[in-house]
């Protein structure tokens, strides 16, 4: 698999109380465990099973993902801008790997 690189699109600045949209994408095959290879052997499941978002270390949003999620999982969601700080995005792989991305946001 290509090197896994998470991508996050979030506003750098927001007005106090504004509801902002954050879009995230990570390249991952999301192997469902339902497929078989050319010789008929099942291909083992390997997906991103959890996506967490924390603001200044406090969890504000998360998703449990299942094999029905498409390859290169895309998740867009909203947050109410109430404090400046660091948004930490964490993706958890079935194989134990963890992929992380951080974006800072300034709320005025």
């Amino acid at each position: 698999m290509a090197k896994i690189r998470p991508r996050v699109k979030a506003p750098k600045k927001a007005a106090m109380g504004e509801i902002i949209e954050i879009k995230t994408l990570i390249n991952h095959a999301m192997e469902s465990g339902q497929r078989k290879d050319s010789s008929g052997n099942p291909i083992p499941r390997r997906i991103i099973n959890r996506f967490d978002v924390a603001l200044n270390g406090r969890q504000v949003f998360s998703v449990d993902l299942f094999p029905s999620i498409s390859a290169n999982p895309y998740v867009a969601f909203f947050l109410k801008a109430e404090e400046s700080g660091d948004l930490t995005f964490t993706w958890h792989d079935d194989d134990g790997s963890v992929y992380e991305e951080t974006k800072s946001i300034e709320v005025a």
Binding site: I19, L55, Q59, V60, F61, S62, V63, D64, L65, F66, S68, I69, S70, P73, Y74, V75, A76, F77, F78, L79, K80, E82
Partner: peptide, 17 residues
């Protein structure tokens, strides 16, 4: 997928594929 929201979400809405 199972989405977990908090009051800080502002709105209970999300998108995926």
């Amino acid at each position: 997928a199972r989405f977990h929201f908090t009051p800080e979400s502002g709105t209970a809405s999300a998108s995926t594929r």
